[in-house]
Design a protein around this nucleic acid. Structure first.
Length: 435
RNA sequence: UCCUCGGUAGCUCAGCCGGCAGAGCGGGUGGCUGUUAACCACUAGGUCGGGGGUUCGAGUCCCUCCCGGGGAGCCA
């Protein structure tokens, strides 16, 4: 009985007899030779079956197997210059673990987006999706390692929350026993602030839900966000932490996935190689000036949000992510600290290059109790709902700051993928709840 | 919610000025000892998104509804 090996490790077994287990991706034949393309999750390899090595029934069956049939193939690993991976399997025995039904929906030709998303559970088997899933895994691990190495503690925030974190946004409502209604969290930040006062450096990492009817390539109704929060840190420290995190994630992904990014996703990785700190920093005022200069006819004016097109225009002025900071106070949520003039919120956004948009949003928080109460009132939010949050300002309040990084937008940027729906295994959008 | 594009074979699409419903892939059968989106031959496969209208005649023109893609607003 030959040892089972994975295709990714095939180079170590040249000349040896091994068993491969996987799924039939494609097959070809030239009569007395059948070529079975086997995929096992780590790679894909061509297995060659010669008629003389098999009994008639098995050999015939090999040429009629349906796509995605599960197979176990035993044979000798042979070096072959014609193979894209340098090796192929000269099969001597085949076991059909389970024959696939004949109507596997995904063929080898192109498919439309809607069809692929309907078949997302099967689409994941493609090499493209396998690479994206791998990059996402690496991104998540790199983020955890980054914070772990810097003495942060992971503090999980709840998914069920009693009220809006920021007030106005549309939240998903769920019934909650005798307590009435609960809402799915739209940010773990307020809990992250509580955690920072407990452990100094905390980060929240989990899914986030937005019921807004956004239909763009940058939006999902359910997405993952990592939100560090640090006591005694100001806006400058926040910017440094943000660029260090992104720099670390980009470096780690390049080190591990460079080859796949280039060959499978056709990503121009030179665009990622530049993404090393320090990142350029511009104020909101400067951003508006730059936009007006670059495109004099743009209708944008001071106090406006920087929209998708402007964001892309701005980001393309730099060869790496750019940090925009000091926003008009009215633009930002109630908990942002303001500068001495009161005109600006100490917020920061990090815009990824190439139109991938805002991948980080955050800033320094208001630590003064009275000011914060006033802000909550100004925002027409119920102060009682924030009593526990205000306690953080009553018992040893300190300056602190943090941010949220969107995992899907980051993966899209790294992979060079147009739409974030491909960067999460099972995307939830306005029009899609299945599979 | 608004703007925009689309819905024709299992999939991707073509179908011109209104005149017999098409191709490639996939499926089936057969052929080939080096194919690799294999190739070659033959073959099966249709409620042209639903409804209504104009017309001798509608996949095609008009109205309407449904579904989906992209974008805007808002945000990660």
């Amino acid at each position: 009985m030959a040892a089972h090996v994975y295709i990714a490790d095939i180079a170590h077994y040249e000349g040896q007899e091994v068993t491969l287990r996987g799924w039939l991706a494609n097959r070809r034949s030239s009569g007395k030779l059948h070529f079975l393309q086997l995929r096992d999750g780590t790679g894909s390899i061509q297995c060659v079956l010669f008629k003389g090595d098999f009994d008639e029934e098995t050999f015939k069956r090999a040429d009629h197997l349906n796509q995605e049939s599960a197979l176990s193939l035993t044979g000798v690993v042979k070096k072959d210059p014609r193979s894209p991976i340098g090796f192929e399997l000269s099969a001597k025995a085949m076991e059909v673990v389970s024959e696939a039904a004949p109507d596997y929906p995904l063929g080898h030709k192109e498919h439309g987006v809607a069809f692929l998303m309907d078949n997302r559970h099967l689409w994941l088997r493609s090499s493209r999706q396998r690479v994206i899933l791998g990059v996402r895994h690496t991104v998540v691990k790199a983020i955890r390692d980054f914070f772990d190495e810097r003495g942060f503690t992971l503090v999980d925030a709840p998914m069920f929350t009693p009220a809006a974190c920021e007030g106005t946004s549309t939240l998903f409502e769920v019934p909650y026993f005798d307590l009435g209604k609960a809402y799915l969290t739209q940010s773990g930040q307020l809990y992250g602030e509580a955690a920072a006062m407990a452990v100094g450096k905390a980060y929240v990492f989990g899914p986030t839900f937005r019921a807004e009817k956004s239909k763009t390539r940058r939006h999902l109704t359910e997405f993952w966000m990592v939100e560090p929060e640090v006591a005694f840190m100001d806006l400058a420290g926040d910017m440094e932490l943000a660029e260090q995190l992104i720099g670390h994630v980009v470096r780690t992904v390049l080190a591990k996935h460079r080859q796949e990014l280039v060959s499978v996703l056709e990503r121009d990785v030179t665009k990622l190689e530049n993404a090393t700190p320090p990142f350029p920093r511009i104020t909101y005022d400067e951003a508006i000036d730059r936009l007006k200069t670059a495109r004099p006819d743009t209708p944008i004016k001071w106090g406006d949000d920087i929209g998708g097109d402007e964001e892309t225009l701005l980001a393309n002025m730099f060869d790496r992510p750019v940090i925009v900071h000091h926003f008009p106070a009215e633009m930002k949520a109630f908990y942002f600290k303001r500068d001495a003039t009161g005109k600006y919120a100490l917020g920061l956004d990090v815009l990824a290059p190439e139109g991938y948009g805002e991948i980080i949003g955050g800033g320094q928080r208001e630590e003064d109790y009275d000011t914060l109460v006033q802000r909550i009132r100004d925002a027409k939010l119920p102060v009682e709902a924030f009593d526990w949050y205000l306690d953080l300002r009553r018992y040893g309040s300190v300056p602190h700051a943090g941010f949220g990084l969107g995992v899907e937008r980051t993966v899209a940027y790294l992979c060079g993928i147009h739409h974030v729906r491909e960067t999460i295994p099972f995307a939830r959008t306005m029009e899609r709840l299945k599979p």
